Each structure stands twice: as structure tokens, then as C-alpha cells.
Amino acid sequence: MNTAPNAPLRQVTVIRPATPRLDTANLATGYLFQVRWENRVNALRHCIDQLVTHHDMPEATAELAALQAYAAIEGTNHTARIDVDATTSDLVVLRTEGGRPVAFTTADLLRLLQRARDEGAAIVIAQDRRRPVVLEH
């Protein structure tokens, strides 16, 4: 190191931040893996609260991150998948184990939701905001 009185000072550029920031999906997935809840409603409620409270995340962003993370964890042991290339705003295409497409229109999904409501299985996670709704099984 040059210690001469008129030597130019060298700047140090930080290549990466000292504390890495996790994206919303990783935060939600990490929280859901850490904590085991007896049902999806409690898991999602607590995950959303955690993301909003401890990570200053907007509530709508936290809801979506928690829902997506829960679905990803739940789907790990299933061979059936939602075909995002075939799915549109009016149709959800589920590919079953053999790759067979199963079509759910918006009307089909609304009927499933109504049936779940009639059976008491459609649960509102945050009653004060009346959202989001999940099906408890």
C-alpha cells in the first residue's frame, strides 16, 4: 500500500451488499418451511402477517407471495400441474398425472367455490378485509 503523503486514495467498491435481500417468494417459502401449522388458513394468515410486519411488504404483495409459496410447497409431491401456457384469464388447464388436460372455466371455478362455501370449506383468511379466500380441506 502506498502511504506517500500525496498518493491518490483508492475507492473500494462493494460487489454485493453485506446482507443479501431475499425476494418475496423466498421469504414466504422460508417462513412456511420454518413453521408448521395445522391448516392452510393459519399458515397463510401468519405468513402474510410476517411478511407485512417484518419485511414492510404491502399487504396485497404479501398475500400473493404467501399463496404462491404455499401452493408450490403443497404441489411438490404431486405430478399434476397447472399448464400455464394453456391457461388464460377464462380457463385454467390442469394436466393430470398422465398429461391429460382437465379444463376449468371461470364458471366451473365459481361453482366449486359456491359448493365449498355451502359446505363451510371456503375460509376468509383475514376477516377484517374479507380476503383472501382459500378452500380448507
Rank of each mutant, 00 (worst) to 15 (best):
A80K: 07
T88Q: 04
D108R: 01
R115G: 04
E74M: 02
A71W: 00
L91N: 01
T88Y: 05
Y70G: 00
C47T: 11
L51W: 11
A72E: 03
A60M: 14
A69Q: 05
V84N: 08
H55Q: 15
Q50P: 09
R115L: 05
E59H: 12
T76N: 12
L112V: 01
R40G: 01
T79M: 10
A103N: 15
V41Q: 12
Q50V: 10
R100K: 15
N77S: 14
A66S: 15
H54W: 09
L44A: 06
I82V: 08
L110P: 02
Q50K: 14
V84D: 11
S89W: 08
V41W: 08
A66P: 12
E74W: 03
I73N: 03
T53V: 12
R95Y: 03
R81F: 01
R81Q: 04
L44T: 05
T88R: 05
G75H: 03
I48W: 07
L44Y: 07
A72C: 05
R115V: 00
R45A: 11
V93L: 07
T106H: 04
T76Y: 14
E74V: 04
L91Y: 01
D90H: 10
D83A: 03
T79N: 12
A80L: 05
V92H: 04
G98A: 14
R115I: 02
R81M: 05
L94V: 01
D108P: 03
L67W: 06
G99P: 06
D49Q: 12
V84L: 10
D49G: 11
T87W: 02
I48R: 08
L91M: 02
H55R: 13
A65M: 13
A72N: 03
P101Y: 05
V52Y: 15
A72T: 07
P101R: 00
A69E: 08
H54L: 10
S89V: 13
G75A: 06
L94F: 00
L67S: 04
A71Y: 00
S89C: 08
A71N: 06
L51G: 11
A43G: 01
L64A: 09
R40I: 09
A60T: 10
S89N: 10
A65N: 12
V92L: 00
Q114M: 04
V92Y: 02
L67R: 06
E63P: 10
D49H: 14
E63T: 09
L67T: 04
V52C: 09
I48F: 08
R115E: 02
H78M: 02
H78Y: 08
T53L: 12
F104D: 01
V92C: 01
D90V: 15
V52I: 12
T106W: 03
A72Q: 04
L113Y: 09
